[in-house]
Structure formats: C-alpha cells, structure tokens
Simulated scan of single mutants.
Amino acid sequence: MFEMAFNKTLPHFYKQSYHITDHTISLKTVETKTASVFNKISMVIDVPSYIKVAKKEFDYAIGFKSIKQYNGYYIDLNGYIEVEDYLKDRFSRSSRQLLRAGKQRLEICFNSSYRMYYGDIDKSLYDALFKRFFNMLKQRANEKGIENRNLKHWDLYTKDVYNMILNKQASLFVIYDSNKAINISLNMHLGKTVYLFITTYDIDYSKFRLGHTNWMLQLEWFIKNDIKIVDFSKGNIEYKKRWANNEYHFEYHFFYNKSNILNKLKVFWMVSILKLKQVLRNGNMNTYYYNFLDKLKPDRESFKKINYELIQQELPNKKENLVIISNDEFDEYSFLRRMVYNYLYLSKLHIDEVIVYKELSNEERFYIKSEKESFKIYFNKK
C-alpha cells in the first residue's frame, strides 16, 4: 500500500493493479524485468484485497503464496451525490445530530475555518503546517503513552509531500481556530482513490470531537471532487468501523523458486508464523505487546494528566491582585487551555466571552469569568 499510495509505483512482481469495484486500472508499470527470486524468498506486504494485481511473467517456475493479515476499512462513495446521503446510510438520526452539534459547537466557541490544500499551497505555509503537524502528533502520542511510527519518517514526508500537493498526488486538510491549525489530515491521492494517510489534532480541543468533524467535512469535499474510494488503511479502530461501509483485509504475497526445496520449506514456516500472529492479533495480544514495549523505552516522554475541578466562586475583592491572561499568553500557561476550552464547550460561550485571571500572590490560583458566572480552578494534587 505504501508503494502505491506514497510512491505511486508497484513492486517489481506486478505489471498492473485495478479496483475490484469498477475494474479501473490504478497503476501500470513500464518495467518488463522482474526481480530475481532464484535463490531467495521475496515478500510483498500490505496488498489490499479490494485491489487486484496482475503478476508479471517469469522465465522459470515461480512459487506464489498469499496469506491474509490485518483488517482494513474503506468507504465506497459510488452513487452518493451529497454527504448527507452517506451519513443517513451510516448513522442514526441522533448520531447525525451529534455530528452536526460537534461542528456547530466548535464554530460557537472559536473563530473556526476549514481548508483543503490540493494543487496549491504556499511553501512557507506548508513548512509551518508540517511543523505544527509534527508537534501535534508527538503531543497526542505522549498523551496516549505510545510511539507514533510516522514521526520516524517525518523528514521523508516533509521533503516529498509539498510537490505531491502541487501535483494533486496528495492533499492536506486543516481545521483552524483563527490562524492556528488544530486538526490536520494528510491524504494520498491515486486516481479516484484517497488514502487517509496521517491525521491528528490538538489535544486541548479533545472535547470538541474534531475527528468526526474532520471526516464529515472531508467526505463532503471527496464527493464534490468525484472521489470514489476513501481508504482508512490499517487499524481496528472503532471510528473507522463507524465511518466505513466496507471491510477488507491486507494480504502478504510470497514469491520463491519452486524448484528450491529449502525455500519451499522456509515459506511454509513463514506462513505458519504469520497465521499464528494473526490468531494472537485477533485476540488483541498485539496491543498489549506494543504497549509493553513502549513502556520499556526510557526516552519516551511522559504525559502528566492534570486533575482539576471548577468551583463556582466570585473573584477576590482585591482586583489589583488579579492579572488577566490573554489568549496570546496561553503558550506560557498551556496547562490551562484544555480547562478553559472544556468550559467553553459546556457553557456554549465564545473564547472572547470569557476572561482568565491569575492571582499575583498565589501562582497556582486561577479564575475563569464570563458575563454570568465565575469559577476558581481547583487543582487536585492527589
């Protein structure tokens, strides 16, 4: 999948690929020479089962084995004219109301806007967005206590994606709070197929369910721009099941010399191991395994959750002991953001309708005040 989505190429063993949904060819290769497997075994991983691949001809007897691994999910948009039509097929009336309410609440509380960058983006803006993208991914990974493997390849993405956007081979969808990106999705385009490659959001806005707003707005754009397949890729994640209308599996393909007995035995052994891994994966053992490995890594940054509650209380009488924290100063008091944003969500107030104060005489005492009420932020240190 990575070769197809990111590099727009096929591995050496295939001459073309096409979709089983409409039989349109997605990729062709001009190479006629195949990679040699005369004295070795070659494995191609992550071949989506909804994509059929035509193998090249070999000069000698070639052995081939295919085994199912992982589940994947995709959206088939064929036949849909409006995003609301798709939402009606996938979600109940109450769920659709919740989806719309999440977007509306974001727009009530912030100066939100949405932008799809496809075919055009300023280079300085691109660099700033990718820096923000990286930081949000890292922050989200730290909060979950996991390692995000995309961060290891970030230099590759940063280097290549800019030209891919200009050439309409990739797109970047951004949700903004004023000029600040709070949700970014990187998509790979291949014909009428979009691969949802990487997405993340600012964890301070967690209350606003940005992920669902992101998928809803992107689907609207995909339908308007004649995208037919939207692939969520790997991961048995609940939201993918909720949004997707098709499930598939990834295949691992083995190529080997049939006349080599040792290679035949090795392939049999490798396939057996993969089958066992899939059994364990079906039992969710891989999640426990990777979480355990992540905890062993000493350089992993830890995320400290702040326990707090808002206690309704009038501001102190001595106003000279209070200092206003402006929106621009939230970088210095970043731990307050989620608290304030959660309050905005619950109170249905705009960010400009609340004032955050700190006490000069007590560095750990803060207040949130709106026109109708005021609260002291109480930190529970237990």
Rank of each mutant, 00 (worst) to 15 (best):
Y205T: 09
S124D: 14
F330V: 02
G211S: 03
N307L: 14
I198G: 14
D231C: 00
F268K: 04
S185F: 06
Y70D: 13
N7E: 03
N246K: 15
Y195I: 11
Y18D: 13
R209S: 15
K152S: 14
I229Y: 06
N342D: 09
H153P: 07
Y117E: 02
I184T: 00
R300Y: 08
I223R: 06
L336E: 09
F58Y: 09
F208I: 12
R115W: 11
F208Q: 09
L172K: 02
L27A: 00
K381C: 03
R140Q: 15
H12W: 15
H153T: 00
D294E: 08
D294I: 02
F197T: 10
A170P: 01
R281V: 12
K28W: 06
N327Y: 03
L315G: 00
K28Y: 06
M339D: 11
S272G: 12
Q169G: 10
S374G: 05
S94H: 14
I325C: 01
I146Y: 10
S171T: 09
Y333G: 02
S113H: 04
I175P: 15
V174G: 02
N78L: 07
L125A: 07
L360D: 04
V174F: 00
Q104K: 13
K180A: 15
N183P: 04
I25H: 07
M43Y: 02
Y80S: 05
I311D: 06
N317H: 12
L349C: 14
K277A: 07
Y256G: 01
M216Q: 02
I355E: 07
G119C: 09
L217D: 07
R242D: 13
L125V: 15
E314L: 03
I81T: 01
F379I: 05
V340W: 14
F2M: 14
T32S: 11
V47T: 11
S113W: 10
F58W: 12
Q104A: 10
I273S: 00
H249S: 03
S178C: 08
Q104Y: 04
W154H: 12
W215A: 07
